[in-house]
Amino acid sequence: MRNPRTGWLLLSPTLIILLLFGFAPFLYVLFVGFNQWNVFSADDGLVFNGLDNFRRLVFDDDFLHSVGLTARFAIFAIGSEVVLGFVLAQMLTRNFPGKSLFRIIHTLPLMVAPIAVGAIWRLLVIPGFGPVPFFLDRWFDLKYQIGSYPDQALWTSVIMDVWHWTPFVTLTMLAGLSAIPKEPVEQARVDGANRFQVFWYVTLPFLRPVLLTTVFIRIMDAIRTVDEVWMLAGGGPGTRFTGIYIWRVVFPRTDYGYGSSISLITLYLTIVLCWLLFIAISGRRKGEVE
């Protein structure tokens, strides 16, 4: 009754669009990645150079450093988002007057365009017009200058990302929590489990698919973040994440060949990471009782 051909037909518009605008550019990048190509070099045009771009990138400290920074950014940002998002969602499962107002307010940052988020945070944290450095200095005697201290720039971008994306995590968690059946929780309570045990043995397993999918989507987006951080700190030391490093290599430096090869490796790392998560989500692990 369900002819696979119909299935393919239903899937085809999606596949066509993605092949055209997703896969075709990928093939082009794959091709360019094995060439030396800088339009402002003495002999412009593509020159095949085999693995030279990759040879260069495994020794490129700036690139490796950017990968490390991105990893730190992603881990800290996503980790905090998950914890905060879970706590907030948990708070939102209770009923109290004004709940929906708080929820709506909490959702607002999600709606701000990343480039505007970067602009707002720049306005908040640049000394001279930003209130944050001013009050930190006055109240806590802290020197806060994201231009002078790379660590502060990194932390600022993490906090900015948390501000922007926690609402998304809260919403998915809330959806996940509201879908958990009541009986197992009550049963566990009756059996004398404490709060933590209920959370660990009952709530968490039910939340796992939502949790992993959320983390999955956040990881992808965090790794390719450009606009927000670009607007905030321009990608100086401390915020030169891989996405921004690629941007600098491809645009101002017009080193298309090398930029493409870095993109390929970044894509490779992202895919491997996400694939492992995907395996975890789809529960294909051995010995797991579905």
Binding site: L51, F54, Y268, I271, V272, I279, R284, R285, K286
Partner: peptide, 23 residues
């Protein structure tokens, strides 16, 4: 491998390993 795989998965893992080893 520690999970169930189909042919595509294994080719995929093969390619991932190939790239990783080369780098």
């Amino acid at each position: 491998l520690p999970f169930y795989t189909n042919a595509f998965d294994r080719v995929f893992i093969g390619v991932v390993i190939l790239i990783g080893i080369h780098l």
